[in-house]
Amino acid sequence: MHGKGKAVCLAADIDTDLVIAGRYLRTKDRSLWGQHVFEDLDPKLAPRLKGSVIVAGKNFGCGSSREQAAIALHEAGVLAVVAPTFARIFFRNAINIGLPLIESNLNCIDGQIVSFDLSSGWVESGGKRRMVRALSPRMLDILKAGGLIEYWKGKR
């Protein structure tokens, strides 16, 4: 729900094919998705993602519904994704696997520390704190539980 990491700046309209290519989907080995994340965008990106906060342009995660895209980011060690808007299926998928998303139009400087707290609804970088639109209470609960699987396990 809260954390901080080094910013990795990405463009607008990053589609889920670019996050994890279709040729890597047919497996249950999640670590494979983390290894190949963003391979078609920039093959040098994956090793930089551990402990990072991705700061992207609008419409992050558009295209295919593949949940593997959100899982790949999580597996690669991304702490959160900040973007002005997210494609809606990716939005649900990310929260459902426990990856925090923050709707904000942040000026991105590669490597700059970005901190966030979704319970209080803010994101901060370069000494400037911005309030962000709160997640729905349900989404916050799912995220707090660590994802939808844990959420439903807890309701047993």
């Binding site: 295209g63 519904s65 949940e67 299926i89 649900r92 939808l148």
Partner: peptide
């Protein structure tokens, strides 16, 4: 549908939309 193009079926005046795998698993349940 667990596919982004599930919106296709709105052609029938249905509310049809896509979700990911976890959402779908919860719907199964």
């Amino acid at each position: 549908g667990a596919d982004s193009h599930s919106c296709t079926l709105g052609a029938f005046g249905a509310f049809a939309t896509g979700v990911g795998a976890s959402d779908m698993a919860a719907i199964w349940m």
